[in-house]
Amino acid sequence: MTKIILITGASRGFGKLWAKALLERGDKVAATARNLEDLHNLVEKYGDAVLPIQLDVNDREASFAAVSKVKAHFGRIDVLINNAGFGLFGAIEETTEQQARAQMETNFFGLLWLTQAVIPIMREQGSGHIIQVSSFLGLVTFPVLGIYNASKYAVNGLSETLASEVKSFGIKVSLIEPNGFSTDWSGASAMQTEPSEIYAPVKQAFFESATPDSWGKPESTTPAVLQLIDSENPPLHFLLGKVAYPGVKQVYSERLAEFEAWKEVSAEAHGH
């Protein structure tokens, strides 16, 4: 059956890649971008199967209007892929208020607005799949990406809660949690703090730890994402890339060992 899919941040990277794959197989896609011209080639190739929408996800009212437009145009929304977001590189101490707020506005609040807007439609349908593009950095952390880590931890906490709230309505929730991929996320789309020499060694160690093999090929994610979309029982947490699983496994093993080491002190703190 043809699916109606709303994808934010469809002008580049994962969003554009997945939109093309969905259109190629015959689905219909509502694609959003800050600049409509960035969606022109999709419309040119796929015609009426694409509904291009200019949207800044930071604008709550515009986000709700965009969702209403998709429902009015296609009649339903089967899948929402909250993909809009960007990376902020820099030490936490270096980060300005404006940078921190901008990161949370887009990566967390923008995603929240679209999620809130689509729930009533999917609830009325009795079905739907909300897919949040998070990161494996919503499960573990890297230095030099503190506010980005925080935004993705927030997305994960929100989405895990959401899954328990909307399950009875027939709505599924999945978190796509990629490791690093060779998209614009760390390039043209990224924001940088004003560097301080104090953190130069930390940054150098972080960037030198990455090898060419650390970065996945974005086009290789397409079959996995299509499988996720088509799954009758999709996972809540869906890791993408070969770096994510061993990284998460190591951190969670260490975390459990630490809890275990302090469990008696923790229990005594309960008071009775």
Rank of each mutant, 00 (worst) to 15 (best):
M1Y: 07
I4H: 02
I7N: 09
A10K: 06
K20H: 05
K20W: 00
A21K: 11
K28S: 06
K28R: 14
A31D: 07
A31M: 07
N35K: 14
L36T: 11
L42M: 06
V43N: 00
E44F: 02
I53L: 15
I53Q: 13
Q54I: 01
L55G: 09
L55D: 10
L55S: 04
V57I: 15
D59C: 01
S63R: 04
A66R: 02
A66I: 02
V67S: 03
K69F: 01
K71Y: 01
A72Y: 01
I77A: 09
I81A: 09
N83L: 09
A84R: 07
A84F: 12
F86P: 04
F86Q: 06
G87M: 12
F89T: 13
T95A: 14
Q98G: 00
A100F: 03
Q103S: 11
N107A: 13
F108R: 04
W113S: 03
W113A: 05
L114R: 03
V118H: 10
E124A: 15
E124D: 15
V133M: 14
L139G: 00
L139D: 05
T141C: 08
T141L: 02
F142D: 05
V144N: 09
N149G: 10
A150Q: 11
A154Y: 06
L158D: 06
A163H: 07
G170T: 08
I171L: 07
V173H: 04
S174F: 06
I176V: 15
N179M: 01
G180V: 14
T183F: 10
D184L: 05
D184W: 04
W185P: 03
A190T: 08
M191D: 14
E194L: 13
I198P: 00
A200S: 13
V202Q: 07
F206R: 09
E208V: 00
T211H: 10
T211N: 03
P212C: 00
D213C: 01
D213V: 09
E219F: 10
T221W: 06
I229Q: 02
S231A: 15
N233F: 03
P234N: 12
P235G: 10
L236S: 08
L236K: 05
V243D: 14
G247H: 02
G247L: 07
K249S: 07
L256M: 14
E260R: 11
W262S: 10
S266E: 11
S266W: 05
H272T: 13
H272K: 14
